[in-house]
Nucleic acid binder design. Sequence first.
DNA 1: TCAAAAGTGTTAACAGTACACCCATGT
DNA 2: ACATGGGTGTACTGTTAACACTTTTGA
Lengths: 231, 231
Amino acid sequence: MESPKKLQDIKVAVDAVIFGYFDKRDLQILLIKRNIEPFKGGWALPGGLVLDDESVDDAVKRELYEEAGIKPDFLEQLYTFGNLGRDPRNRVISVAYLGLVNPSYHELFADSDAEDAQWFSINKLPSVAFDHKTIIETALKRLRTKIQYQPIGFNLLNEEFPFSDLENLYKTIVGQEIDRRNFRKKIMSYGLLNETNNVKKEGSGRPGKLFTFNKEKYKELEEQGFYFEIK
Amino acid sequence: MESPKKLQDIKVAVDAVIFGYFDKRDLQILLIKRNIEPFKGGWALPGGLVLDDESVDDAVKRELYEEAGIKPDFLEQLYTFGNLGRDPRNRVISVAYLGLVNPSYHELFADSDAEDAQWFSINKLPSVAFDHKTIIETALKRLRTKIQYQPIGFNLLNEEFPFSDLENLYKTIVGQEIDRRNFRKKIMSYGLLNETNNVKKEGSGRPGKLFTFNKEKYKELEEQGFYFEIK
DNA sequence: TCAAAAGTGTTAACAGTACACCCATGT
DNA sequence: ACATGGGTGTACTGTTAACACTTTTGA
């Protein structure tokens, strides 16, 4: 860090790739419809400029709440995009975040800076503003990798979920068939799922028992050097 | 991204944690002695403000070359530190990078912005400016994890190295004993080392054959879905 | 001939993979 | 009784982990 020779003129923004999941559907991404230039009327990742008196982490959280009414269950920094020409007006660098929510717990609503906020299937994305396509691809890649060695997928499911939801989630995100028996054995061997007395009500076929993920136990094990791993 | 309500006043900097390794010594980190305020005369990570017309990636490379005469063999973005109060003067966010070099190929020299540039053992670090201690800890953690599933350690060794250097490197970085036979078997099973006709000259004991790391083959395998993994 | 480091195989335990049928429910 | 999805065990295969002596060189 040093004093600038002449005044630096770079703006700092945040953008968030928020994933949501509804059982047996594609993975979804949250986009907002811009109501200001540039790309007014176009879809983009939620985000915006960082304020002078807030941390970058706080900035994403604020923007997500302002633009879509969402407070993600999981949110971590993804990557900082710092190339030239990202924004047609000014030099803007963007600190991108990756977040996970359970959409059924979060009613979307668009506020001041956005005209609309919607879930889009990652397989049917509209074209998006700025370099947001690159950011989304980076996030997807990270999610696919990370879900295999950290139990972050549970943030996308209901508090109580049938085992099959977990199966479907992994199939959807990793994008390949899994062996139901082996997958269950592996997950169960960690002892991180608590069985509830409830069963899944809807749908046909035999009702599945509902489980919860034991976050506390995971933290404990993690501190003892335990590594969650799938596949 | 949106228009600012009032003008945003945040500076964007880069900082680099550059690791170096000399066989059978601790892992080293490159620090520079600041010749400007704040912390003038104190040690700090190489880095500085990003210029308006360069990408963030280019900024680190420039600063590293200006401040220490170094062009790292491996360099990747680490994390962006965006809290308030990092710099006593202005609001500054810093995009931190992690780099690896083989110190014997890089003579350090301090240039304009630094009074001195030196290697420090990670076990005997002086106190460092700003929040650089946190940055260093983040980098170390990342290095220790990453070296176990990506063959980045070779960037710290000579082009031609005896197998024992690799052993010592892993012992040093991961910080635990390894089984020499199993380690060798594992590494050799990937077929990524080319045997040369040369042997290690210095030191006592039986001379070891020198190997080179086959970068091209690794890239090929990687594209086919191969994952390097140790332990 | 001694000290120092390089080089090398086998076995046992464990983890991963492949694979198919019965069960509980609603209609 | 049938359609739908839930729940389960075993045998095989590959991988990891534990373990110690011989070889080559320089002093």
